[in-house]
Amino acid sequence: MAPRKEAQKATECGDSNMEIFSKALTAGSVWVEKDDFLDVIYWLRQILGVVLGLIWGIVAMKGFLGLALFFLINVAIVYLYYSTFQNVDEEEYGGSSEILKEGLMTSFSSFMVAWIILYSALHSEL
């Protein structure tokens, strides 16, 4: 009985991490497990947050323009990713706000940390 249970668990959990990763990079993948897709969005956001933070820090972006631009680019990329690249039906996930919201705060704080640290290391005389 134990192996059967294991097998059942495996199918319930959906794909392995590698499969999810390759699906995330393939246009128009079919997402059986909704959580997998939201996880992809979550991690995409985190990477995006850190990368944008590093860029902002290097080019010495300043003021609220930096914050506004971050939100704009972050939301725009996620929107383009799910609506044009993956072509998912947002209604399945409870509306576009549900997807656009996923991991936004965490991404924002990662972005701030990267931005502040790099900015103060490169562009301040303290």
Partner: peptide, 29 residues
Amino acid sequence: CSFIFLYILCTMSVRQNIQKLLGLAPSRS
């Protein structure tokens, strides 16, 4: 910037990511 501000920001991002990586975050549903 004071210590506490940077610390709070770091914790906000690190904590959630660690929970997610270790699979300890509560499921979405």
